[in-house]
């Protein structure tokens, strides 16, 4: 019989498809990997509110404004939900935010690109959320229970977001010449970064092997990316958008699309902090966090004062 606190017992639970729960034994490497991945996911939801928030006040109809507000509210809710899930691993939200602001923790690099025209809101929903969903659907089967359950809940809302994004693109492609140009411009700018969201090729992905062994990751970066490509290209063609890649083609034998090589220099450059908006996104987060310090202090002071009062009256 395995010792309940042994790595061998842990691995046998993983191999038999069991969920690991917060109080269960887990190797330190597993815990660390989860904290890194889940907090990165939570931070991405929160930072992702910025490029979309950039268009709320300019949304071109009352309906579009409400959909966008509701979507951003969902993203913030996902952030909260994921922070709570990371907290089950023994790290506080304050620590996680500190890690984000110091640059120790990352968020999805896609949000270091700017949202420049209204079609970008469509492209973010369709391509960015679309890529995220492919990843998140796979993560519903991840081995850590709280993360898996968070993903089940989040996937429901994300698929709604993706449809809304595609609806914006469709409307614009049916619209005026200017609208079509905006939609194609957004497609040109978001297509490659969306493909990079899945991370480096499997052959270049240093942490993949542990994550696959521990069933945190159920499918590899390249498998997930291919699913996204195969699903998305027909959607683009259906509404008349051009894929910004002269070499893409459908391989009749495999049924998969093949593309030009991804520009990994750009990927690494943006991750290293040199994307168009890295500085802006982080500074925005820090600025409003600092501006809110007196509010958080007041709420805390009020809580302490009034819990004392309650104690005195008991």
């Amino acid at each position: 019989m395995h010792n309940e606190h042994s790595d061998a017992h842990f691995q046998s639970r993983i191999d038999s498809g069991e969920h690991i729960e917060a109080k269960d034994y887990m190797p330190e490497g597993y815990r660390k990997h989860l904290i890194r991945q889940m907090s990165q996911h939570a931070h991405s939801e929160v930072i992702g509110m910025q490029p979309e928030g950039n268009w709320i006040t300019r949304a071109p109809s009352l309906r579009a404004k409400q959909i966008l507000l509701a979507k951003i509210q969902d993203e913030g809710g996902h952030g909260l939900y994921l922070y709570s899930a990371v907290e089950t691993l023994g790290v506080s939200r304050a620590e996680l935010i500190e890690q984000l602001q110091s640059g120790k923790a990352k968020y999805s690099s896609i949000f270091n690109y700017p949202a420049l025209n209204w079609a970008d809101i469509g492209a973010i929903g369709w391509l960015v959320d679309g890529a995220a969903i492919v990843n998140q659907v796979s993560l519903q089967r991840t081995s850590y229970g709280p993360y898996s359950r968070a993903m089940v809940r989040i996937c429901k809302e994300e698929s709604f977001h993706q449809r809304q994004g595609y609806e914006i693109m469709t409307t614009m492609m049916r619209g005026t010449k200017d609208q079509k140009a905006m939609a194609q411009d957004a497609m040109n700018r978001w297509w490659w970064p969306a493909l990079m969201m899945f991370g480096p090729h499997d052959s270049d992905s240093p942490r993949s092997s542990d994550a696959v062994k521990w069933k945190i990751k159920r499918e590899t970066n390249d498998e997930l990316r291919q699913k996204f490509i195969d699903k998305t290209i027909p959607q683009a063609e259906l509404i008349g958008l051009t894929i910004p890649d002269k070499n893409f083609k459908l391989d009749e034998k495999t049924g998969h699309y093949t593309l030009s090589p991804i520009n990994w220099d750009e990927f690494h450059r943006v991750i290293a902090g040199h994307g168009p908006c890295n500085k802006q996104r982080l500074e925005h987060h820090i600025k409003y966090h600092e501006q809110g310090a007196w509010v958080r202090e007041a709420a805390e002071a009020y809580k302490i004062k009034h819990s004392k009062k309650e104690l005195q009256t008991v």
Binding site: I56, G292, V295
Partner: peptide, 9 residues
């Protein structure tokens, strides 16, 4: 939006 003192807010 994205300017609250805490995420809940």
């Amino acid at each position: 939006c994205s300017r609250g003192p805490i995420l809940e807010e």
